[in-house]
Design a protein around this nucleic acid. Structure first.
Lengths: 220, 220
DNA sequence: CTATAATGTGACCTGTTGGTCATATGACCA
DNA sequence: TGGTCATATGACCAACAGGTCACATTATAG
C-alpha cells in the first residue's frame, strides 16, 4: 500500500497522481507502464513518486482498492433489487449494474481488466485476426447443428460461436493454470477428476446452470 | 513473415531458434520478450536475428503459424470421430483432443495463449488474490440458490462459481472491446441490441445451448 | 584461383527503464 | 529568531531495450 506520505497529501494532488496512473495502466498495462511517464503526467518529481509508493505494483494495487471502494458505493446507491429474486435475475442485475459502473469509470475499468484479464486483445489487429479460421469453422458447425435441430435456434449463430469460444478459452486457461501446478501434468490431465470437471463444464454449456427436469449423466 | 534468409536455413538451426523464441515468449509474453535473450539462447548473433526476421512480432507470428500447422496435422492423425455425432459431442472431442495436443507442446501452447488470452494470470499471487472477495460472495450466493432449488445440484458449487465468473469476464471483455469501437458508448451500451445480446448470453448460461422444450423469452 | 553474392558477426548506437540520493524548500514550533 | 522535520526535487546511475552497420566468413560460379 502507499506510504503515509501519500495519504497525507491533499486530496486534489492524490487524485491528479492516481488519474495519471490510471491513464498509464489503461494505455500500457502493468508491466509496460512507465513510472517516468506517470511522474511526468502527474507533474511531480521522480523522487516524490518513490516517497509515495514502493513501486509500480504498489500504485496499481492502490488503484484497484480505490475502484473496489467506488464500486461498492455505487452498488449501494442503486436501488437494491427485490430481495427475493432468484440467482439468475440477481446475477443479471449485477452484470448490468456493473456495466453502468464501468460507464462512469471507463478508463479505470479498462486499466484494471486489461491487467487482470489479459492484454492480448490490445496488441493490434494482427493478432486478433489470427483466430478467424477457428471462428469460421465453428460458425459452419453451428449452422449445421441448428439445421439438424441440435442447437437452440433462438440463440443466434454469432452468439453461439461466442459461447463456444468463451468455453474453449476458459477451459484452456483452467488447464494451463492448474496443469502448471502439477508434478505430472499428463497424469493430472488424464485423471478421472480432471476429465469429470471438463465434462461438467461442457455439460453446463449444453444444458445450463438452472435446475431442470434433465439430470446430469456423465456421458462419453 | 520471416525473411527468405531464415527459410533457407537448415531445419535444425531453424528449430533451435524457434525453440529459444518459444521459451522466451512462454516466460515473458510478447511485449516483454527480449530479442537479446532469444539471440543469446539461440547461439546466433544479434545481426543474424534481424536478417531472419523483421522484429519480435514477426517471430511470434511465425511461431503461431508453426503451431497451427502442427495442430492441424495432429488433429488429422487422430481417428476422426463418428461423422454423425452431434455438435456437443464433436465439440467435446475437439476440446479433449486439443488438450492432448497441448500436452505434446506445452511451452508453445503456453506462449501462444499467454499472449492471445492474457498475461494477468502470470503476475504473481498478489493479483490473483484480488478477486477472492467476489469469488466468496458468488459462492455464498450459489449455495443459497442450490438450497432453494434454483441451481442444478449435480453441478458442484466451485464449478458453478467458475461458470459465473467466466461469464462475467466474457461479458466484460465483450463490452470493453465493442464499446471502445463506438462513438457514443453510453448510447451503445443502453441500446436494445446490446441489452438483448447480454440477455441472450445470460439466457444461455441459464438454460444452455442445446435445444430443449423451453423457449427464449426476453425476460427482465 | 578469382570474383561475386549470400550469410554471419558483435561492437556500438540511442533511448528508456526502475530506482537512488544529496540537496533544497517551507511549515511549524520554541 | 533559529532549529527541526516532513516533503519535494531532478541530476544521476547501471541495466537493458531494439536496432544498425562495417566488416569477416563462407558458398557459388566462371
Amino acid at each position: 500500500m502507499p506510504k503515509q506520505t501519500f495519504l497525507n497529501l491533499p486530496e486534489e494532488k492524490r487524485a491528479t497522481i492516481m488519474n495519471a496512473a490510471i491513464e498509464e495502466f489503461a494505455e500500457y498495462g502493468l508491466e509496460n507502464a512507465s513510472t517516468n511517464r506517470i511522474v511526468k503526467n502527474s507533474g511531480i518529481a521522480k523522487g516524490s513518486f518513490y516517497q509515495y509508493f514502493e513501486d509500480k505494483q504498489d500504485v496499481f494495487m492502490h488503484m484497484l482498492e480505490l475502484i473496489e471502494h467506488e464500486e461498492i458505493d455505487f452498488f449501494k446507491d442503486q436501488h437494491p433489487p427485490d430481495h427475493n429474486m432468484d440467482v439468475f435475475h440477481y446475477y443479471r442485475w449485477m452484470v448490468k449494474t456493473g456495466m453502468e459502473f464501468g460507464l462512469a469509470h471507463p478508463r479505470a475499468i479498462q486499466a484494471a481488466w486489461r491487467v487482470l484479464l489479459g492484454e492480448g486483445l490490445y496488441y493490434g489487429k494482427n493478432l486478433a485476426g489470427y483466430r478467424e479460421k477457428t471462428t469460421q469453422a465453428l460458425t459452419m458447425m453451428i449452422k449445421l447443428a441448428m439445421e439438424r435441430g441440435e442447437v437452440d435456434p433462438s440463440v443466434d449463430v454469432v452468439l453461439a460461436v461466442m459461447v463456444m469460444e468463451t468455453w474453449s478459452n476458459a477451459i484452456t486457461t483452467y488447464v494451463l493454470n492448474e496443469g502448471m501446478k502439477q508434478k505430472d501434468v499428463l497424469k493430472w490431465m488424464r485423471s478421472t477428476k480432471t476429465q469429470e470437471t471438463i465434462d461438467k463444464l461442457l455439460y453446463v454449456m449444453e444444458y445450463g446452470l438452472r435446475k431442470t427436469e434433465s439430470e446430469f449423466t456423465a456421458s462419453s
